[in-house]
C-alpha cells in the first residue's frame, strides 16, 4: 500500500501543517513516510502545497504526479490539483470558499463547509484541522484515534496550549463526515 496525498491552499491556511501532522502520525504508527513541501519564492498569501506519501514499503519518490487524494483549501488549488487526481480519487474541499461545479466526473468530492465549522468552535485559524479531521475520516490514511491520543507529541512542542482547540477541530471535521 502506497498512498499519495497533496494538501493545498493559500499560504497561511495551514496546509503545510496539515501535511506535517499526517506525516508525523504515520511515522509514529511505524509506516514509511515522506513529506515534500512546494518551495520557492516566498510570497505571503501565495499558494502553498505539500505532498505526503504514506507506505508500507520504501518510498521511491516523494512527488505525486497522480495523487490518490487531494485536500484543497482554496479555489486555485482545487482547479490545479483535481486535474491530476487519479481517476476514482478523492478530493476534500473547503466548500465554504471553493466552488466545485466544474469538477471532473470521475472523481469523488467531499465538500466540507470548513470555515463555518471552524467558526462554530470559535477560531477560523483551525479550519485546516477541521478539514483534516474530515479527510482522515474519509481516507483512513492514518488512525484517527491514534492521532488524537498522541496529538501533543505529533504537533510537537510550542503548540501545547493549542492542543485542546486542535483536538476539538479535528473531531468536528471527523464527526461531520460520520453524519
Amino acid at each position: 500500500m502506497m498512498i499519495k496525498t497533496i494538501f493545498s491552499g493559500f499560504g497561511g491556511q495551514g496546509v503545510l501543517s496539515m501535511g506535517y501532522t499526517v506525516a508525523n502520525t504515520a511515522m509514529f504508527e511505524g509506516k514509511h513516510v515522506t513529506y515534500f513541501p512546494s518551495y520557492g519564492v516566498e510570497v505571503r498569501g501565495g499558494t502553498a502545497n505539500c505532498t505526503v506519501v504514506v507506505s508500507d514499503e520504501e518510498i521511491a519518490s516523494p512527488v505525486a504526479s497522480e495523487p490518490d487524494f487531494v485536500v484543497a483549501m482554496n479555489q486555485p488549488s482545487f482547479a490545479r490539483f483535481q486535474s491530476i487526481l487519479q481517476s476514482g480519487g478523492l478530493i476534500c474541499v473547503n466548500s465554504s470558499i471553493v466552488n466545485t461545479s466544474a469538477a471532473r466526473h470521475d472523481i469523488e468530492i467531499l465538500a466540507v463547509p470548513t470555515s463555518e465549522l471552524a467558526e462554530q468552535i470559535g477560531s477560523i485559524k483551525v479550519a485546516n484541522m477541521v478539514l483534516l479531521g474530515a479527510f482522515i475520516r474519509a481516507s483512513s490514511i492514518v488512525s484517527f484515534d491514534f492521532m488524537i491520543k498522541n496529538l501533543s507529541q505529533i504537533l510537537g512542542e510550542g503548540k501545547s496550549q493549542l492542543i485542546k482547540l486542535n483536538k476539538e477541530a479535528l473531531e468536528m471535521g471527523f464527526n461531520y463526515v460520520k453524519e
Binding site: 506535517y20 506525516a23 511515522m27 513516510v33 515522506t34 513529506y35 515534500f36 513541501p37 516523494p62 512527488v63
Partner: peptide, 10 residues
Amino acid sequence: DGMLGQMMEP
C-alpha cells in the same frame, strides 16, 4: 539536491 534537502522523512 533540492528534493533531498526540502523533503522530510523519519
